[in-house]
Amino acid sequence: MELHELVQNVVNAISIGSIYALLALGLTLLFSIMDILFFAHGAMYMLGAYATYYFCTKFGWNYFVAIPLVILLIGTFGTLIEKGLFRPIRNDHVAIIFLGIALNWFLESAGFIVFGLRPKPVASAFPGKLQFLGSTISWERAVVVIIGMIAVFSLYFFLMRSRLGLGLRAFAEDPEAAELQGISNDHVCSLGFFIGCGLAALAGLLVAPIFIITPAMGSHAVLISLLVIGLGGLGSIPGALLSAFIIGSIESFGTAYLGANITWGLIFIFVVVFLTIRPTGILGVERE
């Protein structure tokens, strides 16, 4: 194996890992705060991508103007969903998963009707490619790596260091005690959904130009994210980052040296065996 092949595969692994980490971030955040699995995360990602398409390609706005708008839009939508649909059954975790599945399905099918069948492209805001050590990566992927890392670390520090983050974590620890301390459960849930859906929209904004937009993209994304956060340990942000890179590396090197079709089978076997041996995932903690 030549050096530049190895470097190229490492670069591929990093790029795939960052994409997966970005996809899984919102999901793992919601899990860490509210202990729920928000299946419609995939639909939020899809809506974020379509919003980007409409703002940038259809209306011709500047990409950087679209970024905050899309995040705000989808975040607000997420808050509305939380208020209208999730709040009544907030504590029934299984019902919430089913509700998420149904919502995801609803938005996906409605997406096919509203947005049309044809896959949509978004022109990249970062054209060109970057070359080093004989390997290549397009700038849009490099941007995903950079912004993905920034998003992961800033979210982590937001949760760990800021007052708001402290409130969220207090809620995660014990909602009733947090309520007694003056932390409104309703506000925390709204904020959690806002940030979670906003992160899904961010993923849509950044990842969509690399790939192609269809209403069905969300389901695929949410299943991959589920795998990532399951392996990393539910609710653990560093764990999700780590497992995204592990899965990215298996995918990159597995595809390059074993074949494309066998790789995903290997990933599933790896996750199943790992979780059987260590049910909490890489960095997860035991939850009641």
Binding site: L226, L227, G230, T276
Partner: peptide
Amino acid sequence: KGIYFAII
């Protein structure tokens, strides 16, 4: 339990 079982 829960999601872990679902994922596995």
